[in-house]
Nucleic acid binder design. Structure first.
Length: 596
RNA sequence: CGGGGCGUGGCGCAGUUUGGUAGCGCGGGUGCUUUGGGAGCACUAGGUCGCAGGUUCGAAUCCUGUCGCCCCGACCA
């Protein structure tokens, strides 16, 4: 390809609305253009990058015996209603774009494809003899994100590879799951990315085991906790750890203390000479259930710990056997709009009686109560006395008359000790999620009544897995991980071109001829070559070549008369003056050896 | 959804406080010079100042409304 014909438009200034470096470089290098918030056009250079990534993904998925397919983006609501996700994905902060057609039928733009693929499987996979099957597609997905940001990192339309597997039993699912784990590691490796696999929450997709693949980067939106021995790593949403031991409360008699105006744990500690780990903090939340009920929830947790909302949602959902649309903290304004001004907000104890909810306008009239282990294990503690401005001190669970329902609800944090080895300390870093694999189990097959006939002639729902890779996000994550002050430094395997031939002075007939010759030789040598044949000054061409990040550059310039060119490696700026033949041999052999 | 900020030529911005009919840099075009790290000079094209109302003799500027975009937050009791 010729730069003069490439529609290459690079920017010298950083566009005002790009915050992170990868987003800036992709815009400046002429890779992407924003069309609307969270909606991007992939320009020709970007499309080449995406095609390379897709090819790697295809090769690896195919060799793992997955079948490529293409499912519709526009989907009917019915299967989504069967799995109960229509409500969850379209109401409130639901992420599904949805619409009605001229007949009034409800449709959604696919944020994911479990419903569609399972419905198809149900029609096509009738016997255990056909299983297991893994299907995948590379397709645009649509999600109405609360806040799209950072270019392709969190956009509303994006390209995703999603795969779904169907099995006759759980062990077959587990085998495919670990095969996908290996496949994913090969894919990211071949793309030139450094990733870490972490234990993850399965989120609204549901299911049992799941693992995320993170590109570590300081601009990542996810928090990852890892042990220093590398044996444990998890998304903070899922991470578990040993909490620090509490500082025991000094001996004393059970009594009430005045705590007027002491509205935070910090105030309580400072004004009463106590430690946060001696307090049972009680948090009031409201969960919106799939049935649209508003369920008040009362959480007790040790004062120095933070609530992990993801763990809470999962625990609650399992307890009431109903999906939760969202959960929100309660503040005084919400209380008064609910007609519950009398609730002793700020001095709530774990024993708060359900009767305080009797005047609630829209809430259920009982609390669901959960207690974190850090709180339930305290022998003697401080907690709200359910009267404004009063707290119990030296109180016990027995004296409160509460038998806590215990669950792990706390947020693991950097500095905590690890479960697998108490001498290992958790460290926190940020990551960009580029892949996620799940063991779904039978959640979707059951709700869609998708069954096959087993060896014994009985109908049985499939065991399912699903496996995603954010193709467009991966491309930007690669830039986030591979750049310098001058621009992008693409890993060879996904660079839009492998070599760029720069003719320093296009008006010099000798340089021009030599450049064209080299370019032709590279093409014949099966190299993805680009030639900068623009009538531009050399400096402009060098700047652009660095910015767009082509891994190798051959400059035909001042040494052309001597039959020599300069070969430069983008990654480390290593430069050599070589005879044409030497340069060609070297670049062709280097490129072919590095092609994964 | 809450808070903050911004909409002026393709990009980055000034001008808005104090109303007087739009400017700078980059980019585009033409010509000459230059030619290995985003050249110089000259000429040139390109903007209903997001949109709609209002105030005024006069509005990019003041007022009201509206749309769009970006950032932060979304309750840690």
């Amino acid at each position: 390809m010729r730069v003069s014909r490439l529609m290459l438009v690079t920017l010298r200034d950083v566009p005002a609305d790009a915050e992170i470096i990868s987003h800036q470089l992709l815009l400046r290098g002429g890779y992407i253009r924003r069309v609307a918030s969270g909606i991007y056009a992939y320009l020709p250079l970007m499309w080449r990058v995406l095609k390379k990534i897709k090819n790697i993904v295809r090769e690896e998925m195919d060799s793992a015996n997955a079948l490529e397919t293409l499912l519709p983006q526009l989907q009917p609501s019915e299967p989504w209603k069967s799995t109960g996700r229509w409500q969850a994905y379209t109401s409130g902060e639901g992420i599904m774009f949805h619409l009605k057609d001229r007949q009034g039928r409800e449709l959604g733009l696919g944020p994911t494809h479990e419903e569609i693929i399972t419905t198809l499987a149900k029609e096509l996979l009738r016997s255990y003899r056909q299983l297991p099957i893994t299907l995948y597609q590379i397709q645009s997905k649509f999600r109405d994100e609360i806040r799209p940001r950072f270019g392709l990192m969190r956009s509303r339309e994006f390209i995703m590879k999603d795969a779904y597997s169907f099995h006759g039993n759980e062990s077959s699912l587990k085998a495919t799951y670990s095969s996908m784990d290996r496949t994913y590691k090969r894919i990211f490796n071949r793309c030139g990315l450094t990733t870490v696999a972490v234990d993850a929450d399965s989120g609204s997709i549901g299911g049992a085991a799941s693992q995320e693949f993170m590109v570590t980067a300081k601009t990542g939106e996810d928090f990852i906790l890892t042990s220093s021995d590398g044996k444990y790593s998890a998304n903070q949403e899922k991470a578990v750890s040993h909490p620090s031991p509490p500082i025991p409360l000094k001996e004393g008699k059970t009594s009430l203390i005045e705590t007027k105006g002491q509205n935070t744990i910090k105030d309580l500690c400072q004004q009463n000479d106590i430690e946060a780990s001696q307090i049972v903090k009680v948090i009031l939340l409201v969960a919106r259930l799939q049935s649209l009920k508003k369920q008040p929830v009362l959480i007790s947790i040790r004062g120095d710990q933070e609530l992990n909302e993801i763990k809470l949602i999962n625990t609650l959902a399992a307890q009431i056997d109903e999906d939760i649309i969202d959960i929100s903290y309660v503040n005084p304004e919400k209380l008064s709009s609910e007609g519950l001004e009398s609730l002793p907000f700020g001095s709530i104890g774990p024993d708060l009686n359900d009767s305080v909810l009797s005047n609630a306008k829209s809430w259920e009239k009982n609390f669901l109560r959960l207690t974190d282990e850090t709180a339930s294990s305290l022998k003697s503690f401080i907690c709200g006395a359910n009267k404004i401005g009063k707290h119990h001190i030296h109180i016990t669970w027995e004296k409160l008359g509460v038998i806590p329902t215990v669950a792990d609800l706390r947020k693991a944090k950097s500095g905590d000790r690890c479960l697998h080895d108490k001498d290992q300390i958790l460290k926190e870093c940020r990551g960009i999620e580029v892949g996620h694999i799940f063991q779904l189990g039978r959640k979707y097959s059951q709700s869609l009544n998708a069954t096959f006939t087993n060896e014994n002639g009985k109908e049985e729902p499939y065991w399912m897995g699903c496996y995603g890779i954010g193709i467009s996000r991966l491309a930007q994550a690669a830039v986030e991980q591979n750049h310098d002050n001058e621009g992008i430094n693409w890993p060879l395997a996904i660079a839009p071109f492998e070599v760029i031939v720069v003719i320093a002075n296009q008006k010099d007939p000798q340089q021009k001829k030599m450049g064209e010759e080299i370019y032709q030789r590279l093409i014949k040598g099966n190299i993805d070559a680009l030639i900068d044949d623009r009538v531009e000054r050399a400096g402009v061409k060098f700047k652009d070549a660095d910015l767009i990040g082509i891994p190798f550059r051959i400059v035909v310039g001042r040494d052309a008369e001597a039959g020599k060119v300069e070969l430069i490696k983008r990654s480390n700026r290593e430069s050599k003056i070589l005879l044409i033949e030497e340069a060609l041999d070297k670049v062709i052999s280097e490129v072919s050896s590095k092609r994964p």
